[in-house]
């Protein structure tokens, strides 16, 4: 662990990403203390410029932009995290079954994976949320449904490579059940690429969520960054800050997660880095 941290911290941009990410997480945790009032409540005149009473100004209705960003941080991070977890679960199950059993199971599951990769994914997500009616759950499900194929392909590849190795053959020989071999023997050996893919997937999930809520498909009961930008676009001409700041929040968060993900990748594969 200490060795791992040493390798991770050698990558300066990854450390910078980690610091930004920690700041965003702190903002999400401290939001109810920093801005105890409901982020939807009207706190002042509409479209007050930044630094004139409110740090980042107010929006068309007089809601505090900074409060919205703080409360939105939790929503973005949680949706990104949960959507990724669900996508990983589906992807690992399908990829593991395909790679472990091979044959027609592999064929059928890979056809399914290819089908989901062919479908225009963002359009599919829009359709799913529109049909299920917008809520945090439907957004998480929609993002997971369009994201799992990447994981499935990755896990299948790892399983195919490990399936024929001696330690797996030995487990089969002593009569260990397939489920135990898959979960206790093979899976732990391909965790590092899964973790790297997962961390990058959180970033993509946050981007998809912001796009959905920008189009008006966000959960109407929670404040989110995409919604703020979408609501501010009508006053773009007179109040640029309503759109600008939530967008910067998305940009910084996604950038930070990508940097951490790449840092993890380098730390897991130290030889690749010195190329």
């Amino acid at each position: 662990m200490k060795e791992f941290w040493k390798r991770f911290s050698r990558n300066r941009s990854a450390v910078a990403g980690l610091l930004i990410l920690i700041a965003v997480i702190l903002l999400a945790i401290l939001a109810p203390i920093l801005y105890p009032e409901d982020p939807f409540s009207l706190v002042g005149l509409p479209m007050v410029e930044p630094f004139e009473g409110f740090l980042l100004g107010t929006d068309i209705l007089g809601r505090n932009v900074a409060a919205g960003i703080a409360h939105g941080a939790k929503v973005s991070l949680l949706i990104g995290l949960f959507a990724t977890l669900v996508a990983m679960l589906i992807g690992i199950l399908i990829g593991a079954a395909a790679g472990y059993y091979g044959g027609w199971i592999d064929d059928a599951l890979m056809r399914l994976t290819e089908l989901f990769q062919t479908i225009p994914s963002f359009l599919f997500a829009i359709l799913l949320v529109a049909i299920m009616t917008p809520s945090i759950e439907s957004i998480v499900i929609a993002i997971a449904v369009v994201s799992w194929p990447t994981v499935a392909r990755l896990v299948r590849g790892e399983f195919l490579a490990l399936r024929k190795r001696e330690f797996v053959e030995a487990c089969v020989g002593v009569g260990m059940s397939d489920w135990r071999i898959i979960t206790l023997q093979i899976l732990p050996n391909c965790l590092s690429p899964i973790i790297v893919t997962g961390s990058l997937m959180v970033a993509t999930a946050i981007l998809i969520e912001s796009g959905l809520s920008f189009l008006g498909l966000g959960d109407p009961n929670v404040m989110s960054w995409g919604f703020m930008v979408g609501a501010g676009r009508t006053v773009l001409r007179s109040a640029w800050w309503v759109c600008a700041f939530p967008g910067i929040a998305i940009l910084l968060t996604v950038l930070a997660i990508n940097l951490v993900g790449e840092g993890l990748n380098d730390a897991f594969n130290p030889r690749l880095r010195n190329r």
Binding site: G226, V229, V254, N258
Partner: peptide, 8 residues
């Protein structure tokens, strides 16, 4: 560019 939302 990777991290920037299109609409923004």
């Amino acid at each position: 560019s990777y991290a920037t939302p299109l609409f923004w």
